[in-house]
């Protein structure tokens, strides 16, 4: 196999295919992070929730220590947290490829999506399941980040707010979240970079992202190496500047802490 300028010139005539792939990849990553963030936020709140239906058992007075321990154990049971935890573990402990197939072939095997294209070339019935699968996946991962960001705010802040009579919700909204967002945003932006790369897996269900177009160009021209190099170049050009911008913003935010 050789890499030649001739081949590169030849595949450059398919430039608009790569351009379309680029748009699909970026759009997919944006949709994923946007919806994934809301999912992650909901999951994080579930993980931090204090819904304990058997809480009253804590208050039951008994002299038997073992019975007391058993009561306290049951009192800790939090169904909302359990559900969120199960979901996160499912996402983390199964391959992304399997998750995408599950969503595309099983979930959207039952639900028929309308067939239409938007922006002239993006097939909704493939793009949408891919975005859903990626969002479900990255939501699971991001929930840990968001929970960490919220827990990272000094406990004294909560105590101060509660001692002033603020409710839990008011404390969260006015005091904790504005401070947590500084911890969370850079990580979410990094997730965007990760998704740009991971979304390449979506060509397996026919989403016309960069990788899908690589395959198309390969089969149209019988040139194998150069389209791949082209894809490598495109992914790098997307991810490198983005992560540099995030670093810069992060640095600025840290400086503003010491104002």
């Amino acid at each position: 196999m050789t890499i030649s300028w001739g081949n590169i010139e030849k595949i450059l005539t398919y430039g608009n295919m790569f351009q379309q792939g680029l748009i699909v990849t970026v759009l997919l990553a944006l949709c994923t992070v946007f919806f994934g963030f809301f999912l992650a936020f909901g999951l994080a709140l579930m993980l931090l929730s204090d819904v304990r239906p058997f809480r009253y058992l804590e208050k039951v007075k008994t002299d038997d220590i073992n019975k007391k321990k058993r009561n306290d154990f049951i009192a800790k049971f939090n169904p909302v947290k359990l559900i969120a935890n199960c979901y996160v573990q499912f996402v983390r402990c199964t391959p992304m490829l399997v998750q995408i197939f599950l969503v595309y072939y099983i979930v959207f095997g039952f639900i028929t999506l309308p067939k239409f294209t938007f922006f002239g070339f993006i097939q909704f019935e493939r793009f949408f399941p891919a975005a859903v699968a990626l969002a479900l996946n990255s939501g699971g991962y991001m929930s840990a980040v968001i929970r960490g960001g919220i827990e990272g705010v000094d406990n004294g802040q909560t105590e101060a707010a509660r001692s002033l009579g603020m409710s839990k919700a008011q404390t969260m909204y006015h005091i904790i979240l504005p401070q947590a967002i500084k911890n969370i945003l850079p990580a979410v932006a990094n997730e965007f970079v990760t998704i740009i790369k991971e979304s390449s897996i979506c060509y397996t269900i026919g989403v016309q992202d960069i990788m899908f177009n690589v395959k198309s160009v390969q089969s149209a021209t019988f040139i194998i190496a150069e389209p791949l190099l082209m894809a490598t170049f495109l992914y790098f050009c997307l991810c490198f500047p983005t992560s540099k911008i995030i670093e810069y913003v992060e640095r600025r935010m840290r400086q503003s802490d010491n104002r």
């Binding site: 000094d154 802040q157 001692s163």
Partner: peptide
């Protein structure tokens, strides 16, 4: 009941 803490706990933002 007002409370004052050792580490002030003012809201930095």
């Amino acid at each position: 009941m007002g409370m004052v803490f050792q580490h002030f706990n003012l809201f930095p933002h």
